[in-house]
């Protein structure tokens, strides 16, 4: 899996989110503020433009740019959350591509837009350091590295939002999918099979949010009335895994 693969994943995600924009917004209308589909679609459309304008060098760069753009363009809670997820993945992949400790480069001046560094809540990296930039061409990501990157994403989302599994959030899809991917990678599965397993776990996790009572976000104000609806964030997380599986299938 190289930078081209990760760019294709993000582009496929943008397409799938656009195709499901109204569905996600309807889910959000039931228990949230009816903007999840619109917000994510706007965010990923901006990501598409950003990737086209600045073709990124490494897989990690692709995901870091994706995350930064989502943070800047989404406006709702999904911006910081998905933005952090992708930035953590980007940082993890670039670090994996460059095993030696990164030199303490001076941060580039004028951090465009001054979006905060990729470290999130509590974990701070130098301003301007868009993760760790791997050497140009530092390129093939293994399944184990991808699984570790998802673990970093999950940890980042948990730290930022404070959600645990069962709170009826995106974590309910992201956590089981991340576990399934790690198990598959350790078991030596082929990427397609591993991503099948991750997608199945994400979809099951999203489906399993229906009977849950929300404990985070606007839906939590509804108390018991949040029961009986699928969480929109878990649903969009499953779509992101569907895009990943689709791209791996070629």
């Amino acid at each position: 899996m190289d930078a081209k693969f990760f760019t294709a994943w993000i582009e496929e995600t943008a397409r799938v989110i656009a195709a499901n924009r109204d569905h996600l917004t309807r889910l959000d209308a039931a228990i949230g503020d009816a903007d999840h589909g619109t917000n994510l679609d706007r965010g990923f459309a901006a990501v598409r433009e950003a990737l086209a304008a600045r073709p990124a060098g490494t897989p990690g760069d692709v995901l870091t740019l994706t995350g930064t753009t989502l943070i800047r363009k989404v406006g709702g809670a999904s911006g910081p959350l998905y933005g952090t997820a992708f930035r953590q993945m980007g940082t993890a992949l670039n670090a994996a591509a460059q095993p030696a400790p990164p030199p303490a480069d001076a941060p580039p001046p004028g951090n465009a837009g001054a979006v905060p560094p990729a470290g999130d809540a509590g974990t701070t990296t130098a301003p301007g350091a868009e993760g760790v930039t791997a050497p140009a061409g530092g390129g093939e990501v293994t399944l184990s590295e991808l699984a570790a990157a998802f673990e970093a994403a999950l940890a980042g989302v948990r730290r930022l939002g404070g959600a645990a599994e069962g709170d009826k959030t995106m974590v309910d899809a992201l956590a089981p999918a991340t576990r399934a991917l790690a198990v598959a990678a350790n078991g030596g599965m082929k990427p397609e099979e591993a991503l099948d397993a991750a997608l199945a776990a994400a979809e099951e996790g999203a489906q399993a949010t229906i009977p849950l009572q929300a404990r985070k976000g606007r839906a939590s104000y509804l108390g018991e009335r949040s029961i009986g609806h699928k969480d929109p964030g878990a649903a969009s997380t499953a779509l992101i895994f569907a895009a990943l599986r689709a791209v791996a299938a070629g």
Binding site: A77, G79, P80, D120, G122, T124, L160
Partner: peptide
């Protein structure tokens, strides 16, 4: 509340 808190948290510096 909500995304304001999440966005603010991205800027925290000890």
């Amino acid at each position: 509340l909500g995304s304001s808190v999440l966005t603010a948290r991205l800027f925290e510096q000890p």
